[in-house]
Simulated scan of single mutants.
Amino acid sequence: MTPPLRIGVIGLGAIGQSLLRAFTANPEVQVTAVCDVNAALAETTARPLAASAWTDHRQMLGAADLDLVYLAVPPRHHHAIALEVIRAGRHLLCEKPLALTLGEAQDMQRAAQAAGIVHALNLPLHGDPGIETFRRLVAGGSLGVLRRAELTLVFPQWPRGWQQNPWIGGREQGGPIREVGPHLLHVILTTLGPVARVWAHTEYPAGDAVACETAAIGTLELAGGAQVVVSCLTNVPRPEQVSLTVYGSEGTAGLVNWAVPVAAVGQAPLEAVPVEGPPGPAGARLVQALVSRVRGGPGDLVDFSMGVRIQAVLEAWEQSSQRGIWVDVEQA
């Protein structure tokens, strides 16, 4: 029998715990080591898994027999820890955004490619049947010429109730554009094409130099000239809304509630579109693809090159907001 893939998890917060369940549900995987700066959390997580518990990731990398490491720590730590994982020769799954800066993301991509390891970014919308149906609607020609797209992010509370931690509401690492944006930027980049330049305006709480944005508006200009208008608003008495709408000369296609495809021809109202493709949890898809790729087989993963492309858009957004001008997006 083929031995199970041995996994180490660094970072046991809400996101790390969520994917940990997907790892443990796969019979081809064994979580053999977990690490968190909270020793009690590491111990309680490790015990039912019969895994070793660590508070120092360097010690874990040096002592535990691992095939792949899942890095689920806050973004400011991705670069340093990822490079140590790569130097240790372990395959690597990293949380999004890939890093804190574009330079760090590029370092990680170059190191992973040079080491010849499997490297992937955790973007749960990747491979979602609803997203794939939306892509086919946009690519099928029924929309006509692309006129404009609109991305809307509305959150009644930020950080969200399940996402309370010391950094997610901070300006350096958190905020809805940096935290939620990568999911939809991935959809935009893979459906509509490269973003050439960005204009953005961001609002922050008055008198608070460290809190993340409460609102933002901006425009992503695609390489073909069409524009994606972005509107983000938090802490308003409205239900959460994450939607993407693409307007063509002949029809409209969109995503509502993150991944539900809708479409209309002409002036007809938008209606839900039957989803094509087998359903299934995003974590299960990701874990199975990782198992296959590590074993030398096929597997549909978002690698670090896409992480760099997303980071380039985020960095241009931040620079534009600071400078009040259009900023070109660095292309790979």
Score class of each variant (00 low, 15 high):
Arg58Gln: 10
Ala14Phe: 13
Ala272His: 14
Gly62Pro: 05
Thr44Ala: 04
Gly207Arg: 10
Gly266Lys: 04
Ala64Thr: 04
Leu66Tyr: 03
Val229Phe: 06
Thr252His: 01
Val256Pro: 01
Arg87Leu: 06
Gln319Glu: 13
Gln59Ala: 12
Pro194Ala: 09
Ala223Arg: 08
Val327Phe: 12
Ile15Phe: 12
Gly299Ser: 08
Gly296Thr: 10
Leu270Arg: 02
Val198Arg: 08
Glu84Ala: 14
Gln109Leu: 06
Glu179Thr: 15
Glu172Tyr: 11
Pro269Asp: 08
Gly89Ala: 03
Leu61Ser: 06
His186Gln: 12
Ala46Arg: 08
Arg21Gln: 14
Pro176Leu: 11
Gly218Asp: 07
Ala264Leu: 00
Leu184Asn: 05
Gly141Asn: 09
Cys232Gly: 01
Glu330Met: 15
Gln227Tyr: 02
Val256Ile: 11
Ile7Trp: 05
Pro269Lys: 05
Arg238Thr: 05
Ile15Asp: 06
Asn235Pro: 01
Ala284Ile: 05
Asp56Leu: 07
Arg148Ala: 14
Val236Lys: 02
Val230Ala: 05
Arg148Tyr: 10
Glu43Ser: 05
Lys96Trp: 02
Leu137Gln: 13
Tyr204Ser: 07
Ile7Cys: 12
Pro274Tyr: 13
Asp208Ser: 08
Asn38Cys: 08
Arg323Ser: 14
Ile325Glu: 15
Gln241Phe: 02
Val294Asp: 11
Gly283Arg: 09
Ser320Trp: 12
Ile310Glu: 14
Gly181Ala: 05
Ala14Thr: 11
Arg6Ala: 14
Ala40Gln: 13
Ala206Pro: 03
Pro159Met: 13
Pro156Glu: 14
Gln163Trp: 15
Arg323Lys: 15
